[in-house]
């Protein structure tokens, strides 16, 4: 494998060349050298000749084997002032991971945020693996069903891709369906504040996660009321997926639930001005 030199190491190599300073051996080394041989080992500084490593090479150096080539490359890197055992270059088959790790690499955040939340909402009796398999089947159903026919009176989130793009990105499809029917508010009742023991309904905004949870619970409610046409383990996920397609196509009654909550929320927002509620929200 040739050494992978990035642009910075190349620059460093260039700067080394510009000054052409060969490393001066220390006095001890020099003394040893003189003791061993009679010829001088002092570098020829004023000869005006470039060091041999910087002369243009007319022919490639004779390399006997691949290991030899690797060793030569390492020597060359040492000459350039680089560490030949840079962990980002040597010793890692696939290189070192980039830090900080992207969120998808984290064990706990392996799946898309919507997918992992919805998977846990699908779970029954604590059987997460089954819920995950169901989720995979839902996504597969979305991938293989024809592109949805959008209903202009039930608009999806602004910025949604065209319907033909949805089946090939099932995670986006699912997320778009859930986010589009997710309610913005919930009604919170303050007991006895409306007078006469009645509760005072006040609209409260929801966080994104809460909104998705509400929307998916509505979807699951209508799924549980549906009759299954087939049998077997694909039945439940297929019913869920059919409902998701129905949401995107505007056929689902989940839209009515959303409309209902929004109507009530709009109606009861006058209660926000109630002095009793002021400090509580």
């Amino acid at each position: 494998m040739p050494p992978r030199l990035n642009i910075w190491s190349a620059c460093r190599a260039l700067s080394t060349r510009a000054f052409a300073q060969r490393p001066q051996p220390g006095p001890a080394v020099l003394a040893r050298g003189m003791a061993d041989s009679t010829t001088s080992r002092l570098p020829e500084q004023n000869s005006g000749k470039l060091p041999p490593s910087m002369l243009p090479q007319s022919e490639t150096p004779a390399v006997t084997s691949k290991e030899n080539e690797t060793a030569l490359n390492q020597l060359r890197m040492i000459e350039y002032g680089l560490s030949s055992h840079d962990p980002s270059v040597e010793g890692h088959k696939y290189g070192v991971p980039e830090l900080p790790l992207p969120s998808q690499k984290h064990n706990k955040h392996r799946y898309d945020a919507v997918v992992s939340q919805v998977t846990r909402l699908l779970m029954k009796d604590g059987k997460l693996a089954k819920a995950q398999r169901d989720m995979a089947m839902i996504l597969n159903y979305l991938r293989t069903s024809p592109p949805p026919k959008l209903d202009p009176s039930r608009p999806l989130l602004p910025g949604a891709p065209p319907a033909s793009h949805l089946p090939l990105d099932p995670v986006l499809y699912l997320g778009l369906a859930i986010d589009s029917v997710a309610p913005l508010v919930k009604l919170r009742g303050f007991k006895g504040m409306a007078g006469g023991g009645k509760s005072l309904e006040v609209p409260v905004p929801l966080l994104a996660r809460q909104r998705r949870r509400t929307a998916f619970q509505w979807i699951l409610d209508s799924v549980n009321k549906k009759k299954s046409r087939g049998s077997g383990r694909t039945m439940f996920p297929h019913r869920v997926a059919e409902e998701i397609v129905a949401v995107v196509e505007g056929r689902s009654n989940v839209w009515d639930k959303r409309m209902q909550i929004h109507k009530l929320g709009t109606g009861s927002r006058a209660n926000l001005a109630n002095p009793q509620v002021k400090g509580l929200i």
Partner: peptide, 22 residues
């Protein structure tokens, strides 16, 4: 209600192509 055998047919049905796939 689904006719006898219809549920099984749904379960065992084999689809050989997906028009969404490239």
């Amino acid at each position: 209600p689904p006719a006898p055998g219809e549920r099984k047919a749904y379960r065992k049905r084999i689809t050989l192509s997906n028009d969404n796939a490239i």
